[in-house]
Write a protein that binds this DNA or RNA. Structure first.
Lengths: 112, 112
DNA sequence: ATTAAATACCTAATTTTATTAGGCATATCT
DNA sequence: AGATATGCCTAATAAAATTAGGTATTTAAT
């Protein structure tokens, strides 16, 4: 993910959440969704996305189906049951981490 | 940083912001500040912290001073002028990225 | 008709960043 | 005496993303 060197490690949570919100999607569609959804502030490169998708598929979080549309191949990914549960866990954890990060950024030592 | 595999890449921003908020600090103190500030949800391991501090020092963002307190050595880090500016940039960028991340997590394809 | 841009999949090599797993030393608490 | 806390650090490994490609079809522009 290209965020200018910040906020890495959230890609799998993003993938799972995109699929939770939108049902089956294909890779190229996800890259556009992230760009649009963030108003061009975030970019998921395909080189980051595809390995992440394959890993989630391997670990049973995603199921796939290949379709041909307008002469081109599309590989659709959808959440498995395990993937849905994992998505909920990761989203909750990510939100918690964002909240903690905010707290740390605001933290001041008490002068006692 | 130990966040359970999520939100990496924000360590330098955290360091710069801690120093912005609290003035000079030493490494061990920063690890405690992050733990306390996040209510134990986040942990910066020293193995992550010290290399990050050294890198920021090398690149001129931080200046150091060694003091002896109660028989122990402390290496205090403070922001250089460049470090202050860089801290502002990184904080702004991080906040932008958190906002964008939230937008992406809420994103739904328009069905047209 | 040719070229550029968009669509659609992918991988290999490298770099960046953090984790795991230590080392070393002093001070305080039990 | 031994454990815990304080305080610095590094080396080897792993995880994750970036850089830099490759392949192929379709659509838009020149």
């Amino acid at each position: 993910m290209e965020t200018g060197k910040i906020i890495k490690g959230s890609l799998s949570a993003i993938i799972l959440q995109l699929l939770e919100n939108n049902g089956a999607m294909y890779g190229y569609e996800m890259t556009k969704a992230v760009r649009q959804g963030s108003m061009e502030k975030m970019k998921v490169t395909e080189a980051a996305l595809y390995p992440a998708l394959h890993k989630l598929e391997e670990s049973g979080m995603l199921e796939t189906e290949i379709k041909f549309v307008e002469g081109r191949q599309r590989k659709y990914y959808r959440l498995s049951e395990n993937g849905k549960a994992e998505g909920r866990r990761q989203l909750e954890h990510l939100q918690e981490m964002i909240a903690s990060l905010q707290q740390v950024l605001d933290f001041r030592l008490q002068k006692s």
